[in-house]
Simulated scan of single mutants.
Amino acid sequence: MRNISDLIEQHLKQLIQGSSSGAIEIQRSDLADKFSCVPSQINYVISTRFTLEKGYFVESKRGGGGYIRIQRVDLPSLEAVHHHVHQTVGDQIDQTTAEGLIYQLEEARFLTLREANLLKAAVSRDVLQLKLPLRDEVRAKLLKAMLVALLAK
Protein backbone atom coordinates (compact mmCIF):
# COMPACT_ATOMS: atom_id res chain seq x y z
CA MET A 1 0.00 0.00 0.00
CA ARG A 2 1.24 3.46 -0.85
CA ASN A 3 1.63 6.14 1.77
CA ILE A 4 -0.13 9.50 1.89
CA SER A 5 2.85 11.33 0.36
CA ASP A 6 2.74 9.04 -2.69
CA LEU A 7 -1.00 9.64 -3.07
CA ILE A 8 -0.62 13.41 -2.84
CA GLU A 9 2.24 13.35 -5.36
CA GLN A 10 0.23 11.21 -7.78
CA HIS A 11 -2.80 13.49 -7.44
CA LEU A 12 -0.76 16.63 -8.12
CA LYS A 13 0.96 15.06 -11.12
CA GLN A 14 -2.42 14.05 -12.56
CA LEU A 15 -3.68 17.62 -12.12
CA ILE A 16 -0.56 19.00 -13.82
CA GLN A 17 -0.84 16.50 -16.67
CA GLY A 18 -4.50 17.40 -17.17
CA SER A 19 -3.72 21.10 -17.25
CA SER A 20 -3.37 22.67 -20.69
CA SER A 21 -0.66 25.03 -19.40
CA GLY A 22 1.31 22.38 -17.51
CA ALA A 23 0.77 24.32 -14.30
CA ILE A 24 -1.65 24.25 -11.40
CA GLU A 25 -2.50 26.53 -8.51
CA ILE A 26 -3.65 24.87 -5.33
CA GLN A 27 -4.66 25.90 -1.85
CA ARG A 28 -2.60 24.02 0.67
CA SER A 29 -5.47 23.80 3.18
CA ASP A 30 -7.91 22.50 0.54
CA LEU A 31 -5.51 19.74 -0.45
CA ALA A 32 -4.86 18.88 3.20
CA ASP A 33 -8.64 18.59 3.74
CA LYS A 34 -9.00 16.38 0.66
CA PHE A 35 -6.36 13.94 1.97
CA SER A 36 -7.24 14.34 5.67
CA CYS A 37 -3.72 15.36 6.60
CA VAL A 38 -1.99 18.37 8.10
CA PRO A 39 -0.93 21.19 5.76
CA SER A 40 2.73 20.56 6.61
CA GLN A 41 2.37 17.16 4.89
CA ILE A 42 1.49 19.04 1.68
CA ASN A 43 4.57 21.24 2.17
CA TYR A 44 6.73 18.16 2.63
CA VAL A 45 5.49 16.52 -0.58
CA ILE A 46 5.92 19.69 -2.61
CA SER A 47 9.37 20.52 -1.24
CA THR A 48 10.75 16.99 -1.73
CA ARG A 49 8.99 15.73 -4.85
CA PHE A 50 8.42 18.85 -6.92
CA THR A 51 11.91 20.32 -7.07
CA LEU A 52 13.66 22.04 -9.95
CA GLU A 53 16.01 19.05 -10.25
CA LYS A 54 12.95 16.87 -10.80
CA GLY A 55 11.55 19.21 -13.45
CA TYR A 56 9.15 21.42 -11.50
CA PHE A 57 9.09 25.10 -10.62
CA VAL A 58 7.20 25.92 -7.43
CA GLU A 59 6.01 29.35 -6.41
CA SER A 60 4.00 30.12 -3.32
CA LYS A 61 2.11 33.08 -1.96
CA ARG A 62 1.29 33.07 1.71
CA GLY A 63 -1.63 34.75 3.37
CA GLY A 64 -5.42 34.82 3.06
CA GLY A 65 -5.67 34.30 -0.70
CA GLY A 66 -2.40 32.42 -0.83
CA TYR A 67 -1.69 29.61 -3.24
CA ILE A 68 0.99 27.21 -4.34
CA ARG A 69 1.70 27.18 -8.07
CA ILE A 70 3.46 24.13 -9.50
CA GLN A 71 4.69 24.27 -13.09
CA ARG A 72 6.22 21.44 -15.07
CA VAL A 73 9.46 22.48 -16.77
CA ASP A 74 9.68 20.42 -19.94
CA LEU A 75 12.85 19.52 -21.75
CA PRO A 76 11.92 20.27 -25.35
CA SER A 77 14.56 18.56 -27.44
CA LEU A 78 17.50 16.21 -27.23
CA GLU A 79 19.87 19.11 -27.85
CA ALA A 80 18.33 21.00 -24.94
CA VAL A 81 18.65 17.88 -22.79
CA HIS A 82 22.38 17.58 -23.59
CA HIS A 83 22.84 21.24 -22.67
CA HIS A 84 20.82 20.77 -19.46
CA VAL A 85 22.88 17.70 -18.50
CA HIS A 86 26.21 19.49 -18.99
CA GLN A 87 24.95 22.57 -17.15
CA THR A 88 23.49 20.58 -14.23
CA VAL A 89 26.34 18.12 -13.79
CA GLY A 90 29.36 20.37 -14.22
CA ASP A 91 32.69 19.19 -12.76
CA GLN A 92 31.05 17.68 -9.69
CA ILE A 93 27.57 16.71 -8.55
CA ASP A 94 26.15 15.47 -5.26
CA GLN A 95 23.98 12.36 -5.06
CA THR A 96 20.70 14.23 -4.47
CA THR A 97 21.16 16.46 -7.50
CA ALA A 98 22.26 13.51 -9.65
CA GLU A 99 19.18 11.51 -8.66
CA GLY A 100 16.98 14.54 -9.34
CA LEU A 101 18.41 14.88 -12.84
CA ILE A 102 17.94 11.16 -13.49
CA TYR A 103 14.36 11.39 -12.24
CA GLN A 104 13.67 14.38 -14.49
CA LEU A 105 15.05 12.58 -17.55
CA GLU A 106 12.98 9.49 -16.74
CA GLU A 107 9.82 11.55 -16.24
CA ALA A 108 10.42 13.24 -19.61
CA ARG A 109 10.85 9.74 -21.11
CA PHE A 110 14.44 10.29 -22.21
CA LEU A 111 15.38 7.33 -19.97
CA THR A 112 13.59 4.08 -19.25
CA LEU A 113 12.93 3.00 -15.67
CA ARG A 114 15.64 0.37 -16.02
CA GLU A 115 18.20 2.87 -17.33
CA ALA A 116 17.33 5.29 -14.52
CA ASN A 117 17.75 2.56 -11.90
CA LEU A 118 21.13 1.57 -13.33
CA LEU A 119 22.31 5.18 -13.31
CA LYS A 120 21.16 5.70 -9.73
CA ALA A 121 22.96 2.55 -8.62
CA ALA A 122 26.18 3.57 -10.38
CA VAL A 123 26.31 7.06 -8.83
CA SER A 124 25.29 6.03 -5.31
CA ARG A 125 27.55 7.02 -2.42
CA ASP A 126 27.42 3.35 -1.36
CA VAL A 127 29.20 2.43 -4.59
CA LEU A 128 31.46 5.48 -4.83
CA GLN A 129 33.12 5.08 -1.47
CA LEU A 130 35.52 7.97 -1.85
CA LYS A 131 36.10 11.07 0.23
CA LEU A 132 34.53 14.38 -0.81
CA PRO A 133 35.12 16.27 -3.12
CA LEU A 134 36.62 13.40 -5.13
CA ARG A 135 33.38 11.39 -4.86
CA ASP A 136 31.32 14.21 -6.41
CA GLU A 137 33.91 14.67 -9.17
CA VAL A 138 33.93 10.95 -10.05
CA ARG A 139 30.11 10.89 -9.91
CA ALA A 140 29.95 13.82 -12.36
CA LYS A 141 32.31 12.16 -14.84
CA LEU A 142 30.46 8.83 -14.63
CA LEU A 143 27.04 10.41 -14.94
CA LYS A 144 28.01 12.60 -17.90
CA ALA A 145 29.63 9.68 -19.76
CA MET A 146 26.66 7.37 -19.18
CA LEU A 147 24.06 10.00 -20.09
CA VAL A 148 25.88 11.00 -23.28
CA ALA A 149 25.93 7.34 -24.29
CA LEU A 150 22.27 6.75 -23.39
CA LEU A 151 20.97 9.98 -24.91
CA ALA A 152 22.75 9.34 -28.22
CA LYS A 153 19.96 6.91 -29.17
Rank of each mutant, 00 (worst) to 15 (best):
M1R: 11
N3I: 08
N3W: 12
N3Q: 14
N3P: 04
I4Q: 10
S5G: 14
D6R: 14
L7Q: 03
E9T: 13
Q10A: 13
H11M: 09
L15G: 13
I16V: 14
G18M: 08
G18K: 12
S19L: 14
S19N: 06
S20Q: 14
S20T: 05
S21G: 07
A23Y: 03
A23R: 05
S29W: 00
A32T: 09
A32C: 06
K34Q: 03
S36H: 09
C37E: 15
V38A: 11
S40G: 00
Q41F: 02
N43S: 14
V45L: 12
I46M: 10
I46Y: 03
L52C: 01
L52G: 07
K54E: 11
K54D: 02
K54V: 02
Y56N: 06
F57R: 15
V58G: 10
R62D: 11
G63H: 10
Y67I: 10
I68M: 05
I70F: 10
R72T: 12
D74P: 03
L75M: 14
E79A: 12
E79G: 08
A80P: 06
A80I: 12
A80C: 13
V85C: 14
V85I: 15
V85A: 07
V85L: 11
T88E: 04
T88F: 03
V89A: 11
V89S: 00
D91W: 01
D91F: 00
Q92V: 01
Q92I: 00
I93N: 01
D94P: 00
Q95E: 15
T97G: 04
A98M: 03
L101M: 13
I102N: 08
Q104S: 07
Q104G: 01
F110D: 01
L111T: 07
L111P: 09
L111K: 08
L111H: 08
E115G: 02
A116M: 07
A116Q: 10
N117Y: 02
L118C: 05
L119A: 07
L119Q: 11
K120T: 07
A122F: 13
V123D: 00
R125C: 01
D126P: 00
D126A: 02
D126Y: 04
V127F: 07
P133F: 00
L134A: 08
V138C: 02
R139Q: 05
R139Y: 08
A140N: 04
K141G: 15
K141E: 15
L142S: 09
L143T: 02
K144T: 13
A145C: 10
A145S: 11
L147C: 05
V148T: 11
A149F: 11
A152V: 05
